[in-house]
Design a protein around this nucleic acid. Sequence first.
DNA 1: CGAGGTGATGTCAGTTACTGCCATCACCAT
DNA 2: ATGGTGATGGCAGTAACTGACATCACCTCG
Lengths: 199, 199
Amino acid sequence: MSVTVIAYHRGMSRWEPDARGRLELAALALYLERGFEQTTVAQIAERAGLAERTFFRHYADKREVLFGGSAELQTRLVTAVAEAPAEAAPIDAVKVGLDVIGGALQGRFEHARKRHRVIRANPELLERELIKLAALATALAEALEQRGVPQLTANLAAEAGIAAFKIGFNRWISAAKEQDLALLMRDSLDELRAVTAGQ
Amino acid sequence: MSVTVIAYHRGMSRWEPDARGRLELAALALYLERGFEQTTVAQIAERAGLAERTFFRHYADKREVLFGGSAELQTRLVTAVAEAPAEAAPIDAVKVGLDVIGGALQGRFEHARKRHRVIRANPELLERELIKLAALATALAEALEQRGVPQLTANLAAEAGIAAFKIGFNRWISAAKEQDLALLMRDSLDELRAVTAGQ
DNA sequence: CGAGGTGATGTCAGTTACTGCCATCACCAT
DNA sequence: ATGGTGATGGCAGTAACTGACATCACCTCG
């Protein structure tokens, strides 16, 4: 097995671009190879051709390096909900948001799979994922409030949306081949309604 | 301000009982006084009259000391759902579970308030709370499956139940004086149905 | 009553995540 | 050229957490 170690050499300066990208790649690879706990930040930095100190300038901690894309996902979600038709009911605005999230992840099945395997294997990483989802729920609720939805309703609709996201995502990631994520999330939301209605 | 420091003295042996209880009390008090990050485990242990090493024998890490009761809560929830009438729909079994959780926390308003204030003030503690809730959701889903509920339905009903728990708890903890927690959670679940139905 | 067994605790050394501080380097505008 | 700026490296320090071993109170058994 060949291991890619990026190091200084002729033509490659200290300021080789995309330090973040290199760190994310190196971290995911190492977490897959040896596990999260068995990987030290020094090893990640070395494989990325950077110093350990530099890792912590880009990521607050060892976990965060797996969640570089969550901010953009949240932005897309909020934008989509804000731009949904004014007359749409809260739950329909949520569905629009789910469609956008689904679109953002669609096509990245293999990468999502690897990442998911690493996260599921480590409770600390699962914690980080959960707080990202909670942040997503908060942002979604605030976006709904901006639409004039009362706070309690907004919080409930946001929780329903995140629940649909979680379960739809789990169905997506567990399938043998890539399916339509947005559709799975919409289906989950519909079934959530059926379940809360008492079948 | 007087600070209670427990230390060895005549009549108090090394094996003074309830080490866990002392650690929990000391930790909550210190987290409230100086904040979670500003508190060291050595300080908690000292106030409890124990060595730092002993803290880590009782709690896996500095956060866990605030979640000593979560295992029992989960047990109660699972038991209640298992003992719900066989003919009850999944969502009704969930309601029974919420009632039991509500009953377990009812009357501990002030303690819950302090604990909640500490947790909200620190993202690491929030992460831990979220993973405890996720564990609760998993346990709830498994209890529903034991009742013969299909897996997908069980997961959805469990997510709905935990959403109702979260929002009901937030309403409870935010009120000026203690209200009926189980009732708030039931109401939240009912309103969740209304929201997912599109109002 | 003494001897050993058991479980909780204490002590200590070591690893690693993470932080603060300052030096260094490439690039850019003037 | 000169100086400013932003990203990086190096290094020391703190504190969370772990492993290994000693110690202590209590219990059981003979």
